[in-house]
Design a protein around this nucleic acid. Sequence first.
DNA 1: GTCCATGTTCTTTA
DNA 2: CTAAAGAACATGGA
Length: 281
Amino acid sequence: MPELPEVQTIVNMLAPRIVGLRIDLVELERGDIVTPAGFDLRAVLQGKVISGLIRRGKRLVFTLEDSNRFYVHLGMSGRLTMDALGTERAKHTHLILRFDQFELRFRDPRRFGGIWWMGSAPDDSAMGPEPLTIGSRELLDRLSRTTRAIKNSLLDQRLIAGLGNIYVDESLFGAGIHPLAPAHRLSVEQVQRLVRSIKATLRKALRHRGSTLRDYVDAEGGAGAFQKLHSVYDRGGQPCRKCGLTIRRIVLGGRSTCFCPGCQPAPKRGGGRAKPRRPRQ
DNA sequence: GTCCATGTTCTTTA
DNA sequence: CTAAAGAACATGGA
């Protein structure tokens, strides 16, 4: 469900409210949402002060006063909301952090999300660079190493972190690039347009507090509004807002993919740039 | 009953 | 061996 704009919206609302607060009580209703398995979250969280909250990719990374960290990933159906004490807890609420004036609830019916304990170790995850600050040179370099379709490449969090199905489709539309175009065959100009489109798309989505298609809500339970402005995502069969042709929906890597056949012409066969560089050992 | 869903990871195939 | 494609995970809504 939540991609970079949705996760950032939650962080923006949450951080000023919880940084500096002490976790008075930890209630873990389902232990199996915690990684590593069997880890005693209450033992390391209860009584601690939260000293920081940032977004990295699609993760919400919490720092404690003792420099230990953990992150929440919302998966497909996860929600992280601030709720009044004593109010009814919705089904599938798996973790509650109680503060003095309210509580933070993690709810996730499908349980693709969860809590990951990071401890104090440096972040050695293989996550790719942030899309809002990546340079076109760096993206070009990364794309040049894979023959996969650009759509699949941009969904790979190790290549670039934070984009999901919605914002990849929207960004490719903005750049006029067909989702099936092989990543390593994109021209320098195409990658420059792509980086500009990714940043413009994400910034605009952030201004509208993300996209709500079914599950996403912000930290106060409110919906986003960017779904009303989507150019292609979830618009298969409808007319393109730019050229009027019918938006097409195909399946790529098991994910629905929407694009405009007029604005995003099919990739040329052959030609293009050199073969992908084999990573040197 | 069927199909589909904003994501990630493990397994299988080439 | 590696890279890429496919399947699996769990629940709910149309």
